[in-house]
Every structure is written in C-alpha cells, then in structure tokens.
Design a protein around this nucleic acid. Structure first.
Lengths: 233, 233
DNA sequence: AACGTAAGGATCGTTGAACAATTCGACAAG
DNA sequence: CTTGTCGAATTGTTCAACGATCCTTACGTT
C-alpha cells in the first residue's frame, strides 16, 4: 500500500510540469501567438504597419483584445508601438544587431563556461544532429531552426528559467533580421560543423577553449549578418 | 552663411536625441509607472490582489486602459496574471530568488570581466560614494538605493542597452522581496565596504580577482536574503 | 468525514460602439 | 520653397453590456 501511494504521488508530481499549460489561453495571448508566428516566418515584413481595424476584423477579435496582443509583442520588441501612429513590425538597426550579439556573448559564454549537465548535453547533441541531417538534405531552412535550437540549448546550461526566457526573446528578435539573408545556405552552412566541434569541446570539459571558440563563432556570425544587412537600411 | 547653416544643422541633429521623450506617454504607461512605484515601495504587498474595478475607479481611467497597464507590469514579472481570477502582486518563491541571483552572477560577472570604460567607472564610483555617505548618516534606506545603483552601474560596463534593461527589470523584481528584511541595516551594511573594494579592483584592472570577489559577494547576499525570506512562505 | 453537486455572487474576458486626440497628406497662400 | 489650413483616416480612451469563469456556501450522498 505504501509503495502504491508513492507511485501515485510521483505521478502527481510529474503532472505539476504541465501546470503551465493550464491557465495559458486568453484570446489576447492566442492572438499574440499567431502574430508572433507570422512575424518570425516573415509574413509580416519589418517596417510594415499592422492596422488595428484590418487585423481585428481578419482575426475576428475586437480592437481592444488585439491591442492587448500588440502590447505583449511590443514588450518582446517584435513590434514598435508609436503613439497615435500605430504598431509596426520592428526594424532592427545595425546597432541593434550588434547589441543582440553582445547579449549572446554574455548568455552563451556564461553557459559554456559552466559544466553543462547531462540533460543539457543531450539537448545540444540533438540539435547538432538535426542540423547535420537537415544540411545533408539541403534543407537550409531546417538548418536554421536547428541552429537556433542549438544555441537555445546551450543557454539551458545556465540552469536559469529567466535566462532561458531571455534567450528565447532574443532569438525571436534576431529572426526579424534573418530574413534579409537572400541565401540562407551561405549563412548557416559554416556553422553546422562548428556546432559539432563545440559540442565535442563541451563533452571533453575543455570549457575555456569552448568559450574562446564560441566568441570567434559569434563574431563571425555577427559579421556575416551585418554585412548582409547594412546595405539596405 | 555656410557655417551658419552648419550650426543650425548641428542644433537640429542634437534635437534628435530627445526624440525618445516624445512618444513616451500613453495613459496606460503612466498608470503602469504609478503602479510600479507603489509596488516597489511596498504600498501593494506581494500576494495582494489588484481589483480592476477598484483601481480603475481610483485612478480615473477605464478598465481597458488599466488592463493594458497590468499587461505591461505582468511582462516585467511584477504582477501575476491568473486567468479569470485577476492580477496579484507577484510572490517570489525562494527558487525565484535563487534564479535572480543566477542571472546577476551572469550579468554582473560578465560586466566585471570586461575592462570598464572611464564613464562606467565614474558611475560606479558615484554609487559607492553615495552609499558611504548614506551609511555615515545612518540612512539605510538610502544605502539600499545606492547599492542598487552600484550594481546597475556595474552592468553598464557591458555597454549593452538590452542588458541594462534586463538588469533594471531584475532589480525591480528583487525589490519585491527586499521588503521582507525587517532590519535593512543588517542587510546593507556589510556591502558598503565591499563595493569600495570592488571598485578598487576594477580601477586596478585586476578583473579576475574582481570576478571571484563578486561571486562571493553575491553568494552571501543571496544567503542573507533567503534566510530572511524562507521562514515566512 | 470525505466527496460530488448545485446555486449565487463577484469578478474577469471580450465585445461593440462612441467620441476625442492625433497624424498625415493635399492644397492654397505668402 | 516655406508656411498655414483643412479634412480624411487612424489611434487613444471611455463606457456599457453580456457571457464565462471562479469562489463560496450549502446541501445531500456515500
């Protein structure tokens, strides 16, 4: 009887993980989810104005609800809210991109310098493998998302929910500018092998080497991005 | 005539700096400012429910506008928004506090490992001096705010607007729990001298020493806070 | 005593309409 | 070419209303 209770308790404890999904469904948040997806897939282009009337009608929600969704995305820096002028899909300046990479160096650098947990290593390894598979299949869009998962997984080594969340937001913001890459292959290909290499360094516990390697990695990614981006401002 | 035009253009260019102040005043944001202040000064206590009806009436704004303000503060993690139940002043768990200090170690640690700019050193030195003055005057509340300014200034060494903003939010969140300290002196006093010490290490360029010193510093602050906090959960 | 159900009240979620405030472009006057 | 002025379009904000959800209380069942 005792062990029976124990397993029940264990099952109940597992359930607690799903608690997050419970409350999470107001109309405004669902609208925000939709818009976030549309923005990160490039359906809405940076600089484009999002009309309250048009979108509220298209989605079948009231203007007030839509405005709540706009607020949410504004706080995620995906939308630019200009008073009395409306909301616009954010346009990142070159300075913004530089700042995003500064933050990445801090977040990912700190993660790499920590001994990553077994669980973190698994997540990282998965992302590496996915990227390699996608590259072999010439699916460079998939390589991009695998790459994002790779860096997100890196940050989980910090064991901090808040840093995970910050990284999620940061990557969403970066997606705003990924679309300027005319040829995604040129941007993603160089990093497939490096991800594998970095994973190796982490597994071997060569953390300082991993950190310097990562710095160079991020420097180059930033350069590539800025070069492709700067011209059309 | 040419140089006349030049100076006019220069003056106009300077004006562009103030552009930020223009759009920054919707009613919802001003309401959010008020509530944020009230929360961080402890007027609203953690766990307290903020009634839409009562507050919208008290502030003379509509429920819709107030809800927009609530969303803003929810995103800053100062309010807890539970669907169909209302918004509550956030209650930080001990795990939250631990996470906040994890983030601080990353943000402040990265800042310290960088050679801080002259400007950053000045800001840090000012905060140190303010803290010492306030301590001499037995004004422990002022010591607390000076201490916050000290750590905020530390992070500016990262030269990243986004990290500055993240630190601002983090400290606002931490203020939610500072109020549990019955005796602010016990909490702030030990750190006045350490701030001075850390400043010295930074000035001398002994960055690695500064980093390890800071880690110990944050460990102890976290311990003090958790010990005072854990009992009354 | 523990649990399921039901009813009522309070509060939130969302809507639709309305009006004021603001922006923006066009066009005329200097 | 610059400077007013006007009007259309859009946003900012308010208000009232109704359905949905949650909490409490009470009641009855097992």
């Amino acid at each position: 009887m005792d062990d029976c209770l124990l397993t029940v308790n264990d099952a109940v404890a597992d359930l607690a993980q799903d608690r997050g999904r419970l409350g999470r469904s107001s109309t405004a948040e669902r609208v925000a989810d939709i818009l976030r997806d549309r923005i990160s897939e490039g359906f809405f282009e940076p600089g484009q104005r999002l009309s309250e009337e048009a979108i509220s009608e298209a989605l079948g929600v009231s203007r007030n609800t839509l405005r709540e969704a706009f607020r949410l995305l504004g706080h995620e820096r995906l939308l630019d809210h200009r008073l009395n002028r409306g909301v616009f899909v954010r346009i990142l300046s070159a300075e913004d991109v530089a700042d995003l990479y500064r933050v990445r160096r801090v977040l990912e650098g700190a993660a790499v310098r920590r001994a990553p947990s077994q669980r973190a290593l698994e997540l990282i390894a998965e992302a590496v493998a996915d990227g390699e598979r996608a590259a072999a299949a010439d699916d460079w869009r998939a390589v991009g998302t695998a790459n994002i998962r790779f860096h997100q997984a890196l940050v989980t080594a910090n064991q901090s929910p808040r840093l995970d969340e910050a990284m999620r937001q940061l990557l969403a913001e970066l997606r705003l500018v990924f679309h300027v890459m005319a040829n995604p292959r040129d941007f993603h290909e160089p990093f497939v092998a490096r991800n594998r290499l970095l994973l190796g360094l982490l597994r071997d516990g060569r953390l300082e080497e991993a950190a310097t390697f990562l710095d160079g990695y991020l420097d180059e990614a930033e350069q590539l991005l800025i070069r492709a981006y700067e011209p059309n401002r």
